[in-house]
Amino acid sequence: MSQPTSNLFDAQSGAESVPRARSPLALAMRRFMRNGAALVSLAVLVLIVLACYVGPLLLGHDPSESDWSAISVAPTLLGGHWFGTDELGRDLLVRTLVGGRVSLQVGLLGTLVAGVIGVAYGACAGYFGGRTDSVMMRIVDMMYAIPYMLIAILMMTLFGRAFYLVVLTISAFSWLDMARVVRGQTLSLRTREFVDAAKAIGVAPSSIVVRHIVPNLVGVVVVYATVMVPGIVLTESVLSFLGLGVQEPMTSWGVLIEDGAQKLEAMPWLLLCPALMLCVTLYCVNFVGDGLRDALDPKDR
C-alpha cells in the first residue's frame, strides 16, 4: 500500500513543479524589466511628466507673474529661482515646466491623431492590395513630395496659431510613415490562417481588418508610436522656434528656446535650461521605445 501512495505523491509533486505558461504580454514585460536603460529612461520620463504637471503648483510661482526684484537673475539655489528669471522677472523653471505640458500634449495628441489615420490607411491598403494598394500608396508618395514646412507656414499664416491647429498641422503629414509600416505588416498578416478562416465563414472584409488585422498590429504600432512622439515634439519645437507654434499666453519648449536664442549672449540660461529639458525628454522616449521594441519583438535585437 505504501508504494502506490508514494508514486501518487511523486506524480503530484512533479505536476506542481511544472512551470506555468506565461502569456506573451508577461514575457514582454519580463524582457522590458531586464533592460536597464529603458527602465531608467522610463523613471526619468515619469519624473519629468510629474514635474511638468505638479511642479508649478508646488513652486508657488505664476508663469506669467513678474518678480521685479529679480529681473534677469542667473540660476541660483538661494533666491528661489533655480533656473533663473527672464528680462521680465518671470521664473524660468515654472515657465519651462508649463511649457513642457504643451510640448508633451502636442506630442501625445499628434501621435494619437497620426496613429489612427496611419493605422486605418495602411491596414486598408495592405489588406485589399492590388490596384487599391497601388493607388493609396501613390497618394502617400505624392504627399511625401509636398514641402511640409511650406504647408505648415501657409496654414499658420491663414488660420492662426491656435493649439489645435498646431496639432492638426503636424499630424497632417506625420501619419505617412505609420501608414507605410502598417501596410507592410498587413501584407504579411493577410496570408495567415486566421484570416483565411475568417474569409471562409463569410466575415466581411471591413470586420476582418478591424477585428483580426488591427489587433495583431498593436505591438508594431506601440513601438513606432514611441518613435513618433519625440519627432512630433521636435517638430513643434522647430515650428515654435520659427515663430509658427503656440502663441502667448501659452508657451512651449520651442517658444522658450526661440526666446533664449535671441538673448544667448546676455542670458544663456534662457536657452540652456529648456533645451536641456527637451533633450533629456527626447532621449528618454527613444530609450523607452528601444526597450519596447526589444521586448515585443526580441528577434530584432
Score class of each variant (00 low, 15 high):
residue 207 S to R: 15
residue 158 L to V: 15
residue 169 T to A: 11
residue 74 A to G: 12
residue 173 F to H: 14
residue 20 R to N: 13
residue 176 L to M: 09
residue 267 M to D: 06
residue 69 S to C: 08
residue 196 D to I: 08
residue 274 P to V: 03
residue 277 M to P: 02
residue 65 E to K: 09
residue 191 T to E: 15
residue 164 Y to C: 08
residue 142 M to T: 12
residue 102 V to C: 04
residue 35 N to K: 05
residue 120 A to L: 15
residue 260 G to V: 00
residue 298 P to T: 10
residue 209 V to S: 06
residue 216 N to I: 08
residue 243 G to C: 09
residue 145 A to Q: 02
residue 178 M to Q: 12
residue 86 D to T: 00
residue 187 L to R: 10
residue 40 V to H: 00
residue 198 A to W: 09
residue 218 V to W: 14
residue 293 R to P: 04
residue 14 G to L: 10
residue 37 A to R: 04
residue 272 L to H: 06
residue 3 Q to S: 11
residue 215 P to M: 02
residue 160 G to P: 06
residue 223 V to Q: 01
residue 216 N to A: 01
residue 68 W to Y: 11
residue 154 L to P: 05
residue 58 L to C: 03
residue 61 H to Y: 15
residue 127 Y to G: 01
residue 149 M to A: 14
residue 57 L to M: 10
residue 124 C to G: 03
residue 288 V to D: 03
residue 208 I to P: 02
residue 190 R to Q: 14
residue 200 A to Q: 13
residue 2 S to V: 11
residue 261 A to F: 12
residue 296 L to S: 00
residue 97 L to I: 00
residue 115 G to W: 10
residue 278 L to M: 15
residue 101 R to P: 02
residue 123 A to C: 10
residue 90 R to P: 08
residue 57 L to R: 08
residue 160 G to C: 07
residue 57 L to T: 07
residue 275 A to S: 14
residue 234 L to E: 10
residue 229 V to H: 02
residue 169 T to V: 14
residue 272 L to A: 06
residue 102 V to G: 03
residue 137 M to K: 02
residue 20 R to A: 15
residue 259 D to A: 14
residue 232 I to C: 10
residue 190 R to K: 15
residue 69 S to P: 04
residue 45 L to F: 11
residue 221 V to A: 05
residue 58 L to A: 08
residue 131 R to Y: 10
residue 238 V to R: 05
residue 301 R to L: 12
residue 294 D to A: 07
residue 294 D to H: 04
residue 249 P to L: 06
residue 149 M to C: 10
residue 92 L to D: 05
residue 142 M to L: 14
residue 2 S to R: 12
residue 60 G to A: 02
residue 300 D to E: 11
residue 245 G to L: 06
residue 87 E to M: 12
residue 150 L to R: 03
residue 136 M to V: 11
residue 31 R to Q: 10
residue 59 L to G: 09
residue 239 L to S: 08
residue 125 A to G: 06
residue 185 Q to W: 06
residue 46 V to I: 13
residue 24 P to V: 02
residue 167 V to D: 03
residue 290 D to N: 11
residue 274 P to D: 00
residue 263 K to Y: 13
residue 98 V to N: 01
residue 213 I to F: 09
residue 103 S to A: 10
residue 162 A to D: 13
residue 5 T to I: 13
residue 297 D to P: 06
residue 135 V to E: 08
residue 36 G to N: 03
residue 291 G to P: 00
residue 203 V to I: 14
residue 217 L to C: 11
residue 192 R to F: 06
residue 198 A to D: 07
residue 233 V to C: 01
residue 286 N to M: 04
residue 112 L to Y: 00
residue 24 P to Y: 01
residue 31 R to S: 03
residue 143 M to E: 12
residue 100 G to Y: 01
residue 17 S to I: 05
residue 133 D to E: 15
residue 264 L to Q: 01
